[in-house]
Structure formats: structure tokens, C-alpha cells
Amino acid sequence: MEIDLSRPILARNDQLASRNRERLEAAGVFALDVLASPGAGKTTTILATAALLRDRYRIAVIEGDIASKVDAEKVKAHGIPAVQINTGGACHLEADMISRALDALPLADLDLVIVENVGNLVCPTEFDLGQGARIVILSVPEGDDKPLKYPQIFALADAIVLNKYDTMHVFDFDEAAFRDAVRHLNGGAPIFPISAKTGEGVEAWVAWLSERVDSARDGGLQT
């Protein structure tokens, strides 16, 4: 006997992601999903972002890692509330993990939740978390060819942060080739060259993010 299922494989994740999104919208909280390779500077970029925004917004961080609490401890040491998710081997975060992390956060008292996904440029792409925007951080030492090797993640990004821009003179990073490859995948996403370490360029990136946090907050107030 044939049974017609015709359903998305990730239906369960998609449903939970929609629920997360509704919950965040109702609370007027903007959630940012941060994707990058291990070592691209996700945590450092998050800390540099929070340093500029913490006087304006109430911020919390959800840290996704296969194991350890290193990142959450690092964020907490800066006085920012953080929840650590250990995926126990899984190479990406899923919507149910975010749902549980949101349970542990005082959503009514927050404006911005930054989700640091597991360091990986492949696996997180299929899993909606309920985020308001997704960004990819690429660091200069990784090379300008990454959009050619990991096209889907660059195609889905709402913005791209090019980190460790201060090391440009050391590496053979062809910025024009990088921008061209990104444009062929995703013409809509702005590219923000920054150095999370020196603070160079962080303001432009933060301005882009602030616009979105403000509009999520306004939306939350109206409901």
C-alpha cells in the first residue's frame, strides 16, 4: 500500500522554529543567528557588538557548542547573560535547543538575543531556529574562496561580516574576488569589513543590527 506523506523532512524543526519566532516577536526581542567556521571570531565579534550596544539594549547570548562552557563563561565574564547549549556531538543548533534556551532567559526584559551557532559552514544551513536574521562571519585568514566552497550559507545570509580585516596585509585575501563571488550568490546582503579586535568597522555593522533590533522592539510594543 502506498502512503502519500508529502511533508518537509524538517517539518518538526520548522514548526518549533515558527513557535520560537512568534514568541520572540511577541516579546519584541530580535534574535540574531551567527554562523561561521571555528576560529573566525564569532565570540569576539559578539563581544565587540555587545560592547557598543549594551547601553542601548538589554542583550543575552545563546552559545552553541558541541561541548564545553568556554564561550558562555567568556561572555558572562563581560557581564552579559549567557546560556550554553551543548549539542553533544551535533554539528548545528536546532529549533528545539533554542526553545529550551529561551525558556532559561527573561525574554520580557531583553531586546536582543545573539545566538552563536556551532562553528560550521555546512550543517546549520537547513535548520531554521526562528531567528530574525542570519549573518555569516568570514575571517580574512580563511581565504577569499569560501563563498565558492560553501555557497548555500553565503546565499542565505542577511549580512556578511568580514572579520580580522586588520590582518589583510599579511594574507593573500583578494577582496574583489570575494565580493564578486558573494554578489553572484547573494546580491542583497551587505558586507561589513571589521576587526572585532581593534574595533575597526564595527560601528557600521552595529548600525545595521540596531535598525533591526529597533523595529523588532517597536513591533513588540504594538502587540
Partner: peptide, 27 residues
């Protein structure tokens, strides 16, 4: 996967019609 600009006018305002499927059809 790599080139998603319109081949006629070069616009990036394009809608993906197929290629994102992850579906169970039938058993």
C-alpha cells in the same frame, strides 16, 4: 549553486523556484 544572478539582466532579485526541497514524498 554558485551563480544566482539573472543571466538576462544581471539582477539578484530572484526567486528560487526549485532546489531547496527536503521532502518525504511517499512510502
Amino acid at each position: 549553486q554558485y551563480d544566482r544572478l539573472c543571466p538576462s539582466c544581471g539582477s539578484f532579485a530572484c526567486e528560487v523556484l526549485a532546489g531547496n526541497e527536503l521532502r518525504i514524498d511517499d512510502v
